[in-house]
Amino acid sequence: MARLSNELVEMPHRSTVAEERAISVHALCKRFRVADGAITALENVTLDVRPGEFVAIVGPSGCGKSTLLKILTGLLAPSTGEIRIGDVAVEGPRRDIGTVFQSPLLFAWRTVLENVMLPADVQKLDRAQHTARALSLLELVGLSDFAQRYPNELSGGMQQRVSIARALLHDPSILLMDEPFGALDAMTRERMNLELQRIWLEQNKSILFITHSIPEAVFLANRVVVMTPRPGRVAEVMEIALPSGRGLEIMNSPEFGAYVSRIRAHFGSSGVID
C-alpha cells in the first residue's frame, strides 16, 4: 500500500472511504488566548492512525505536538476541527486510551504493582483480573522482580517502563506517547525503542508516538508525520517502508539514512531539531 504521502496530506479524509481508522484528526485548529491577542498552536492539522499502526509525529518544540496529544486524550477541546477515535467523536476523556507521558509520573506511595494498577483503581475495574494482568505486563516490560518495590528504588528507564505497563493495563486499543524517552540517556533510549517495538508487535495496539528525535521516529514508525512550528502544521506524512521487527543495525542502512535526511530537510531552515 505504498502511497504518496504528500498526496495524503491534501486529501480530505472523507475521500479515503471505507478504510477503518483508529484515530482520525481532520482540519484541527487550536488557538490560545493570551494577554495580547491569540496564538495559534495548531493549524489545519489532518492525520490518521490505522488500527494496529505505529505513527510517529516528529517536530521541534513549539510545533504543538503536546497540545495535539492533550486534545486527543480529551483533556483539551479543539478550537475547530474534528477528532474521532474509531467512529466516535472525542468529547472528553475516554477509557480506551492509554497515555505515556514525558516523565514516568509514578506515585511515590504506591508500589510498582500498585502504580500499574492505577487505571483499574480509577476506572473501578475488576481487581483480581487486573492484578493478574498487571503482573503479566510487568513481565512484558521486564520488571517482574520489582512488583513490590517503590518507584524511588528504580532507575529512570525502569520507571518509564512501569508507566508503559500502566498505560496498557486497561487494555486500551490506542496508546498515545508524548516523548516518553526524551529524558533518558542515549543508550537506555535505544534499548527502550527496541522494547517498545517488541511490545507493539506483541500487543497489536495503534500507537501515536510524539518525539523530537528523527531517528527514533523512523526506527519505530510505519508512518512519520512531520510537523513544523509556529503555528503547528503537518509538513509531510512519510511512509516508512522498512521491514517490521527492526534491529538497531537498520539505522546504518542507506534507506534509513535517506528517510532521516529527508525529514531533516524540513527543519534545515528552522535550525536543529534534536
Binding site: 483533556l75 472528553g92 476523556p93 475516554r94 477509557r95 486510551i97 476506572q123
Partner: peptide, 11 residues
C-alpha cells in the same frame, strides 16, 4: 501532569 494522568483515565 499527574492530575492530567488521572483525568485522562476518565477519573
Amino acid at each position: 501532569e499527574r492530575i492530567d494522568l488521572i483525568r485522562a483515565l476518565d477519573g
